[in-house]
Design a binder for these strands. Structure first.
Length: 269
DNA sequence: CTCGCCACCTGGGGGC
DNA sequence: TGCCCCCAGGTGGCGA
């Protein structure tokens, strides 16, 4: 599920339940995630979760002595449930906080649970990340500067987390559609004006996705209710062969970097 | 460096 | 029902 909006909505949903709570126990039922869950994680009982932050698609639980780093991969989800709730086959990890627990479910196990001790160097996975798309740092000028000398298609550029973080496969297509830019365009060919349009489109796309998810926040923190209550209507993603909502031309699907890419050949140049 | 491709894993859906 | 193939929202690591 998770691109940046889903991770951010999850962050907001779990933050209220976690902040200030003492970790009473840790359950690691399956440590074979993308990387093995480090042994230190099993010894976190007694620490207090001070805050829940986000960097790119990583969730960062600040615990004083260090930071619990979680990534949802392709299929991960986090839920706050009453302590003692029965677990399912893919419920790999629980952080128990008194009466409640934070549970990681991840069928494909591309997600991760990591630990960085306070004072250690930044975790290598987070050390080289690019700019946050919703921050002021991302604007037309910055995007223009970053894309100079980049021959890769603009869609591949957007999905490269060393440049810009958080824009995944769906929202890359959606953002380029909003900006009316062909996803195959070599990044360095984009003018400053088009970069400005793209920066705006990325922010609009991500913000509206967060808003759409925010309306279902209650479901994340409640005892049940499904993950993925995002009501946002996709503008192009998954609409191969259907009419472009703007001009009526048939939406095309191509493969770029082994990922499905959708665009309107008439609107996007 | 950059770029394109592969791999990691499980499950769902369509076709036969 | 069952099987087989394709597809899936991420991303580190490889060789060219």
């Amino acid at each position: 599920m998770p691109e940046l909006p889903e991770v951010e909505v999850t962050r907001r949903g779990i933050a209220r339940a976690l902040a200030g709570q003492r970790i009473s126990a840790i359950e690691v039922r399956e440590s074979r995630l993308r990387w093995p869950v480090p042994p230190a994680v099993r010894g976190l009982a007694g620490l207090t979760v001070r805050s829940v932050k986000r960097r790119a698609k990583y969730l960062l639980l600040d615990c004083g002595d260090g930071q619990l780093i979680m990534h949802l991969g392709m299929s991960g989800s986090l839920r706050v449930l009453p302590a003692g709730t029965a677990f399912d086959k893919h419920d790999h990890f629980d952080l128990v906080l008194g009466e409640r627990l934070l549970r990681l479910r991840d069928p494909r196990r591309f997600g991760a649970v990591l630990w960085r001790k306070t004072g250690d160097a930044p975790h290598p996975l987070l050390a080289r990340l690019g700019i946050e798309p919703l921050s002021r740092a991302l604007d037309g000028a910055r995007l223009h500067a970053l894309t100079r000398a980049r021959r890769a298609p603009i869609k591949a550029f957007l999905m490269d987390s060393r440049r810009v973080v958080g824009v995944g496969n769906i929202y890359a297509s959606e953002s380029l559609y909003r900006a009316r830019i062909d996803p195959r365009t070599p990044a360095r060919r984009l003018s400053l004006a088009r970069c400005a349009r793209l920066a705006r489109a990325i922010k609009d796309t991500l913000r509206s996705a967060i808003r759409a998810g925010g309306s279902s926040l209650r479901d994340y923190v409640g005892a049940d209710g499904g993950y993925g209550c995002f009501q946002l209507r996709m503008l192009v993603y998954g609409r191969e062969g259907k009419r472009c909502r703007r001009c009526g031309a048939a939406v095309r699907r191509i493969v770029l970097g082994q990922r499905s890419t959708y665009f309107c050949p008439a609107c996007q140049r």
